[in-house]
Write a protein that binds this DNA or RNA. Structure first.
Lengths: 178, 178
DNA sequence: CTGAATTTTCAATAATTTCTGAAAATTATA
DNA sequence: TATAATTTTCAGAAATTATTGAAAATTCAG
């Protein structure tokens, strides 16, 4: 690690942002550390590097595994568990996206679904109408985010690079259907 | 409000989800209440409806205004401030999206930008390389999310309805450049 | 200007979340 | 199997965040 200061400040930043990204400070720090470290690290090394307790590292690693962001490995002749970031940044981003959908959208979607099923006479009620709108929006976002999941990094990248061009593409497509 | 139970359970749900969506319980509840209520409400009515203190309502309303999700209005001959959700569900979703980008992406993007500028010799360092990758990804996501901002609800909707079809469209575009 | 109506602020406290570290559980080695 | 190495758990402590409510500030009608 050439510039220790940069690494350290990046890790601390990820700790501070952690809660905004859906996990806590320690989890953010551990994740950052594993992402910018090439070697595999064991729990003691992580605790040492971040000055946090062994128990906290254990919980953090469990959380990161539940997010499918890190991988456990073993070194021959070493009984310790070693950890490393799971894959490319692209794939990690996709995973985070998917996990967040599960945590932030799906519960609400299922609540709304059941409410709306129980109330077929929704037309009349303003509140239920709004809930229907929210439901439809979330469903669309969920479908769409699902379709991102399957995409290869390259596809995703070229799609994103279109940026605002995507609007133009839409118009283009409309004028020349398949 | 035809079915009081549905409304209440939706509001409570939004309170519980609040923290996952980037605000706290009360803010989630106030937002939900204003979204499914057709009439404008004043702070006392909100406090009453949610059984929370007047002070808490005041802070929650301020927060929601900073998210640009609600609007303050006045009734003739009434000195109280009245509040209502700002716009359509579509537009609210766009706003939330944009605000979250500002809070969850922009700070990291700017940290990374400055680190990478300070270290032109990044090639050699694994950590800096990874930071570069994260930077590029975030920049792409930010650009792309910016392009969503300007879109009309209809455009956004038709884009989303494409769902996974977006991949096919990409291929199509490649084969027939402009 | 005065004072009533209203909103905002903020210190105190309640609630929640995170973290520690020692004990319990697990796993591998001899 | 016994024991040493390692990880996990979880009760309690620490830190953080949310909430209350009373006091301060603001706004406005007369």
């Amino acid at each position: 690690m050439a510039n220790h200061h940069d690494a350290q400040s990046f890790i601390m930043h990820c700790g501070e942002m952690g809660s905004r990204w859906g996990f806590n400070r320690t989890v953010g720090q551990i994740c950052a550390l594993l992402v910018i470290t090439q070697d595999m690290l064991n729990a003691d090394q992580i605790a040492e590097a971040l000055s946090i307790s062994r128990g906290n590292v254990s919980m953090g690693l469990k959380e990161l595994q539940s997010w499918r962001l890190i991988q456990m490995r073993h070194k021959p002749g070493d009984r310790k568990d070693y950890f490393t970031a799971n894959s490319s940044i692209w794939e990690m981003a996709q995973t985070i996206f998917e996990e967040r959908r599960k945590r932030e959208l799906d519960p609400t979607l299922s609540l709304l679904r059941s409410h709306l099923l129980d109330n077929p006479e929704s037309q009349s009620d303003y509140g239920l109408q709004r809930m229907q709108e929210i439901h439809d929006l979330l469903e669309l976002v969920a479908t769409w985010s699902n379709s991102l999941n399957g995409m290869k990094p390259e596809t995703l990248e070229s799609l994103m690079k279109l940026g605002s061009g995507v609007t133009k593409m839409l118009d283009f497509k409309k004028k020349q259907p398949r």
